[in-house]
Simulated scan of single mutants.
Amino acid sequence: MTTTTYTVQGMTCGHCVSSVKEEVGEVSGVTGVEVDLATGLVTVDSDGPVDGAAIVAAVKDAGYEVVAPS
């Protein structure tokens, strides 16, 4: 299993968290998504390497911006 963490900017509420979890969860290979509203951290679990650009695009589709992979 692979775990990658991203810092996302612009989330302010529970709806934001749900939107990011839903979009990122649809990326091929993703098996789990945890979003921490307080820190802006999005932790992505997968069976193997996942295309980072696909994660960034999914966050953007949700209306937010990845400012840094951790």
Rank of each mutant, 00 (worst) to 15 (best):
D45H: 12
S46E: 09
G25S: 07
G29W: 02
V30D: 01
G29Q: 07
K21A: 09
K21M: 02
H15S: 15
C16S: 12
V24Q: 05
T39L: 10
V35D: 06
G14S: 09
E23W: 04
G25P: 06
V30Y: 05
L37Q: 07
E22W: 04
G40Q: 00
G32Y: 01
G40K: 02
T43A: 15
T39I: 13
G40Y: 01
V17K: 10
V35K: 06
G40M: 02
V27A: 15
V42L: 03
S19K: 13
H15F: 10
C16F: 07
E26T: 03
E26I: 00
V17H: 01
A38G: 11
T39P: 10
G29K: 01
D45N: 14
V44G: 06
V27M: 13
V24P: 04
V24T: 06
S18R: 15
G25D: 09
E34Q: 11
G40W: 04
G40N: 01
S18H: 15
V33Y: 00
T43F: 08
E23K: 15
D45A: 15
T43N: 10
S28D: 15
L41D: 14
T31E: 10
E22V: 03
G32E: 02
T39F: 12
A38P: 00
H15N: 14
T43W: 12
E22A: 15
V17T: 13
E23S: 13
S28Y: 04
E26P: 00
E23T: 09
S28M: 09
L37K: 13
E22R: 14
H15A: 08
A38C: 02
G32I: 03
V27T: 14
T39Q: 08
G25L: 06
V27E: 14
C16N: 01
V42P: 02
S46R: 03
G14Y: 08
V42K: 04
H15V: 09
E26Q: 14
E34M: 03
S19M: 10
C16T: 04
T31S: 13
A38L: 05
T31M: 02
L41R: 15
V17E: 09
T43C: 07
T43E: 14
V33K: 00
H15P: 03
T31P: 02
S18E: 13
G14C: 10
G29A: 11
G32A: 12
D36N: 13
G14K: 13
V33N: 00
S28F: 02
K21P: 01
V35R: 05
V20L: 04
E23D: 07
V17D: 05
E23N: 14
G29R: 05
G40L: 01
C16Y: 03
A38E: 14
T39Y: 12
V42G: 03
T31A: 08
C16P: 06
C16K: 00
D45K: 14
V35L: 06
E23C: 03
T43K: 15
S19I: 02
G29L: 08
D45M: 11
V17P: 01
L37T: 06
